[in-house]
Amino acid sequence: MRLARPVGLLLLLILLLIPELLAANGASSVETGWFRTYRINAVIVAAVFSAAVLYYTQRARRGDKLFVRKIAGLDEVEDAVGRATEMGRPVLFIPGIDEIDKIDTLAGLSILGRVALITARYETPLYVPVRYPMVLAAAQEVVQQSYITEGRADSYNQDMVCYVAGEQFAYTATVNGYMMRERPAANIMMGAFYAESLLLAETGNAAGSIQIAGTAQPEQLPFFIAACDYTLMGEELFAASAYLSHEPLMLGGLKGQDFMKVLIIAAILVGTFMVTTHLGGDWMRSLFEVR
């Protein structure tokens, strides 16, 4: 039971914290004790969510079949790399433009690992421009390990992943220039994107590349939807690594998310009813307020 110890530790911590928090004086946001008791609601929600994810992960470990809906954009990744192989053109992967401490970037790197496995298998050239040196080090490690896993360590070249610029638009100009010169057959953009999202996606579109993008930034999604062939929206970006891996253990986390979504929908419906009918709407609102 690889998970037993960390799961036990996490649950023990939560169990220890809750009575401590409940015992402390609640409402004020000025605290004198060790804990910010006014954040107990967030702790409880996090505990329920963690328990759900861990429960479904354990169920997946026991061999239960978990249904995960099809995500067209991710099913298309292998076909896009195959297309690049047939055309003899490279695959461009952009793991977002944010630092490694951003969870979107980590999700992007996880997907990069899966994509690199496919490019290694087909011996398709892969190019990964990055904006931060820390992402560079992590991405190089991810790609190298994928090539080793596929038994193509000799095909790996450190310069497949390279640092291009630290400034947002200097980075964009470099990548756009690459798209127009090299005409990659597939552009895969997964991670955190900001104002450059449309510049990248439109240039890729003009270069005739098949484009698969994914981001959790709602403001950038319309641009990707308009300019890319497939777009992963919000949670699909975080589900991508689990989906591509087909590992039951990873898929268990997705079911935990679904469970939490059901609870949130129920809370929204109850909250809407209470606010509309003036039956304790303020109390309901304060229940979910995080200070």
Binding site: A107, R114, L117, A138, G234, A239, S245
Partner: peptide, 29 residues
Amino acid sequence: GIIIGAALGAAATSLRIMLGIERTYMGKT
């Protein structure tokens, strides 16, 4: 709707990383 889904996805990914289920980011497949 998108923000709630993304936040849950980010939290689940964080949990997977913390527990060592998700290790692709450090080169383990």
